[in-house]
Design a binder for these strands. Structure first.
Lengths: 238, 238
DNA sequence: ATCCGCTCGATACAGTGTACACAGAAGGGC
DNA sequence: GCCCTTCTGTGTACACTGTATCGAGCGGAT
């Protein structure tokens, strides 16, 4: 029986491997790809590069993934599998853990923030598990199902938005070999100075002159997250 | 199309004068690119495609943009220039207008959500203007500058995260020629059914069975936004 | 009239994703 | 023992990408 390409990727993977040959496997492919992306960024992920990394012909991985999109899904699932949310906490602690866990994951794997849209949507088993755990933490609070899912998605949206920005900054810094926030500011200074010289942004200029923790990304993240959780609290406690 | 050196001298001489010069400009380039991306998505944006759209040689636009990244920045600035935030509102209405304006912009130009990270960071004049207007709306409330910027960035992060998801969904739908949410659900049903058959997601399954407004994206967006704004309110009103 | 500099054209190149046909090994039935 | 199907990985090829480079011809300053 031929491999049924119309079946979902995940179903195909869970079918018993009819292959005693086994120099390649979805696992090996995924972790090799993740290793490359972690070390050199998403743009280093190339079917050829992946193949050489696995000491295999360029087209070989196509036996396991139907294309690059599939590969990216596999990578996402691979790293999300490492995320464990502590159970038995209250709703707020659970959402906080969800946010912090996702943040950590996206810091460790900066490429997560630059995936193409169809991959961002991918409903992989590990992601389903995260959703399941979060929904469970929100269960039994008297919320209707739509609100439960809405809360989960809102936190997820905030985390993704914030981390998309943060990891873009960090990718930029490492691309320019900047290691401190001061170096970053120095790098951006000429552009910023030019903007300010137009005189169109007086309030922004005032911010630049008086702010003190301009680049505390962790603090920024916490501020927004706490605001969001506070707002959710008002809807949870009946 | 090649300069045919073997053609008779006289034919070569009578060929139309190569250029009524100033055919290109940053404006023309930006709006042509935006038009293509709006109609066919970001992946249709190709230096060659852009050139043919402008009836010009592939390398011609490089006189105005130093590469594709520059082009994308130009496009971002071009569409953000159309965003006007009403002035004279209170802080909450202003933040709400910022969120809704950005949402509308990202719905109108779905490619905004799939830009590469360095372009997402781009500090273009139009984006600076949006930041300026928002900061102005937050001024005079007794907030310290860091908190002002933090609030602006939090709202922006939420909007980007939420819309990144939403416009990925819509890109997927239009790619599969699905027009209604029911069609979308039908398309995803086999995958979802497979996940559910594993029995690993009981709470998710319960959600699927009992939820009623599963795909009300506007409602989801509003829920999270209102939560966030409520949380901010607690920090604004001292 | 001459020259310079800017704008745009033509060509070329390395690198991308992936379609396609083929080689060889694994294991079951005779 | 053999053969034959089936799966795995190989080799080659193609259309397409971003962009470096060189050169042609116009406009304006000298």
């Amino acid at each position: 029986m031929a491999t049924d390409k119309s079946a979902p990727l995940w179903e195909r993977l869970e079918r018993p491997a009819p292959a005693p040959r086994q120099t390649l496997s979805a696992q090996r492919i995924a972790s090799a790809a993740v290793a490359v992306a972690d070390a050199e960024g998403l743009e280093a992920i190339t079917m050829r590069r992946l193949a050489t990394e696995l000491s295999v012909a360029p087209m070989a991985p196509y036996r396991y993934v139907s294309g690059k999109d599939d590969l990216l899904e596999l990578m996402v699932d691979h790293v999300y599998a490492g995320m464990r949310l502590p159970a038995g906490l209250g709703w707020r602690e659970s959402l906080h853990a969800l946010a912090m866990g996702t943040r950590e994951l996206m810091l460790e794997h900066r490429w997560l923030a630059q995936l193409p849209p169809q991959t961002k949507l991918a409903l992989t088993p590990s992601r389903m598990a995260v959703a399941e755990q979060t929904l469970t933490a929100l269960d039994g609070l008297g919320l209707d199902p739509d609100t439960m899912m809405g809360i989960f998605r809102s936190v997820d949206a905030y985390v993704h938005g914030a981390m998309s920005h943060d990891s873009a900054v960090e990718a930029f810094m490492s691309a320019q070999s900047l290691s401190t926030n001061d170096e970053l500011r120095t790098e951006l200074a000429p552009l910023m100075a030019w903007h300010m010289r137009t005189g169109r942004y007086p309030t922004y200029q005032h911010y630049l002159r008086t702010a003190t923790r301009k680049d505390d990304r962790q603090g920024q993240f916490d501020l927004g997250l706490n605001c969001l959780l506070d707002g959710i609290a008002a809807r949870v406690t009946i």
